[in-house]
Design a protein around this nucleic acid. Structure first.
Lengths: 158, 158
DNA sequence: GGTGAAATGGCCGCCGT
DNA sequence: ACGGCGGCCATTTCACC
């Protein structure tokens, strides 16, 4: 089912877990007003239903030498499925590209790229335009990341 | 210290943990070729040094009714610190804004917003322009999210 | 949902290398 | 800095109400 039932207690659980998932089951259960077993069962169900897709560690970009974020707007004049498949496959193999969207409007695709410096970005850029035919590529550099969260708004559930 | 020493084994640990952090310590240890105690100590140290900032659950956007992603490019002609503080405070209070950058180039700020539909985006948009003075706001809608990962490239460490 | 309890596994000392 | 042992405690996962 595409829309598993998610009630108010589930929303509370999701809100907590998407902030920090390494809580003890005891405090999670207490926070939502359940005892441990049913609380644990709900979390299991949310995982099985695919609402919770993964449990990951978030790293400090600065501490692993990734101070620079670049947004790349891409236009192309080739619009065949074959071209797209190759383009997507290329992007998937570039770990510096952390986000990739197909856009509406004047830009066809948008990327978010993280790199240590401009020189490293240039290498990613060359790899991009070498493997695929792009008619127009526009790079915008972020000076500062003011907000970044993996916590999604939960007010629209249900 | 801004740059804690991170060796090849730490990189392996980080690579595994940023893919899935809910592994048993035993398999983590085996994967990096250590026994459990030193492996556990390394993970603790990476947390304490702030390399690992959090451990979070990732949710399926579609399953919580957030199918639409919007990139918002913002220009302003007010550049005082007071204006900026208010702008940032406003953004921080909008959970639909999941990313927020100060840019170089012709755009001053860039947001990524997640919402269920265009109508919901319009409400976020109104909230934005109501609370702050923005001279130019351009919204670009994503049709499809082709890649999204919280796993950062680890090839630049050290 | 709740309870209780058994099995598992993680935590964190100590000590040897 | 790694490995191993060991005891304590948290969590998981039963069977049952």
């Amino acid at each position: 089912m595409a829309a598993p039932k998610i009630d108010a207690v589930d929303v509370k659980l999701l809100a907590l877990l998407q902030r920090s998932a390494d809580r003890h089951l005891a405090e999670l259960a207490e926070a939502v007003g359940l005892s441990q077993t049913p609380c644990w069962r709900r979390v299991q169900r949310l995982r099985q239903d695919g609402v919770i897709t993964a449990n990951v560690a978030l790293l400090d970009r600065a501490k692993i030498n990734l101070g620079v974020t670049v947004f790349v707007s891409i236009r192309t004049n080739v619009h065949t499925p074959a071209w797209f498949e190759r383009f997507k496959a290329t992007i998937d193999l570039i770990p510096e590209v952390v986000e990739f969207y197909r856009m509406s409007g004047d830009v066809d695709y948008m990327l978010r790229v993280v790199v240590p410096d401009i020189a490293a970005y240039d290498r990613v850029y060359k790899r991009l335009i070498q493997d695929t035919q792009l008619s127009d590529v526009n790079s915008s550099f972020a000076m500062e990341q003011l907000k970044y969260t993996t916590a999604l708004p939960l007010s629209y559930v249900g």
